[in-house]
Design a protein around this nucleic acid. Structure first.
Length: 276
DNA sequence: CAAAGAACCTGGCGGC
DNA sequence: TGCCGCCAGGTTCTTT
């Protein structure tokens, strides 16, 4: 499958920014009411129509479209969502099309989603602060250093991989980047978080930043359904070290082969030789 | 409060 | 060839 995680959402955000900033959402078609639930399609259309767009930002795996009314149009792609900008809304991919926005310059924004887990909703200015408080720190912020990461891991007994996936502790890491960062740091995914040593925490903090930055540079990972805002595939999957490489020779030690286990219900790939 | 598990969805794939 | 059941995973909700 695919999973839009921080690098994928960041890629979409960067590509959309110059295309939608300053534009106004002229019309909205909701083709699948589940995509805007629990709001009604009528309420959703009313909340976003004719609202000028100030800018677009990302928080964790969420995309936020700031509107001049002080409200925010929030989109979460979950597992199979795609958000693509098209010159002509009539040329939008019809398969799994959930919402189609038309902007005042005649271009369009299409939200497609095979699995129907993705959501779009509008947050009022009053509700915003509280909503985003639920998320942990942004791993690419300067303040997210080894000391901050140590504070997150300390006194927690869960497997380190489960902590990396917990959005209330760190925002934006999903299954792909959890596997890839743990491999780069040489840490076994089942290690109890509190038992990860100081030097390992430093390596992990660095691996998180380096891996996410490298993935953004390659416009994310297209394992299956993810596409950039221009409808193209990302290329970071070509550089995966262990994720989805079951049985392959480890690129680190060249001796062991990649294994797959379940951690917190998630498929987890690692090298038993390099990750201890 | 922490942690684990189920539920939500659809399409692809293995097995028979 | 066709059908059944399982698997994938981000987040929320429920249970322990």
């Amino acid at each position: 499958m695919l999973m839009p995680e921080l690098p994928e959402v960041e890629t979409v955000k960067r590509q959309l920014e110059p295309l939608v900033t300053g534009r106004t959402i002229a019309s909205v078609r909701v083709l699948d009411s589940l995509a805007v639930a629990p709001a009604s399609p009528a309420a959703f259309r009313k909340a976003v129509r004719d609202k000028p767009i100030l800018g677009i930002t990302r928080r964790g795996k969420y995309l936020r479209v700031q509107m001049t009314s002080g409200e925010t149009l929030v989109l979460h792609l979950r597992m199979t969502g795609r958000l693509t900008h098209i010159d002509d809304p009539r040329s939008a991919e019809k398969r799994h099309l959930r919402i189609l926005f038309t902007l005042d310059d005649g271009s369009g924004l299409a939200f497609n989603d095979l699995r129907r887990f993705g959501r779009a909703f509008v947050l009022s200015a009053a509700d915003s602060e509280k909503y985003w408080e639920r998320l942990g720190p942004e791993p690419l912020e300067r303040s997210f250093n080894s000391k901050a990461l140590k504070g997150i891991l300390d006194s927690r007994k869960r497997p380190i991989k489960s902590l990396l996936l917990d959005q209330s502790l760190i925002a934006g890491i999903g299954n792909i980047y959890a596997d890839e960062t743990l491999f780069r740091a040489g840490i076994h995914p089942l290690r109890p978080a509190a038992e990860v040593t100081g030097p390992e925490v430093s390596r992990l903090a660095q691996a998180i930043k380096e891996t996410l930055r490298a993935a953004i540079a390659l416009e994310g990972s297209s394992v299956d359904t993810y596409r950039t805002a221009r409808g193209l595939r990302g290329r970071f999957q070509e550089t995966f070290r262990v994720h989805r490489r079951l049985g392959e020779l480890c690129p680190g030690c060249g001796a062991a082969t990649v294994e797959k286990i379940k951690v917190g219900g998630r498929g987890t790939y690692f090298c038993p030789g390099c990750q201890t």
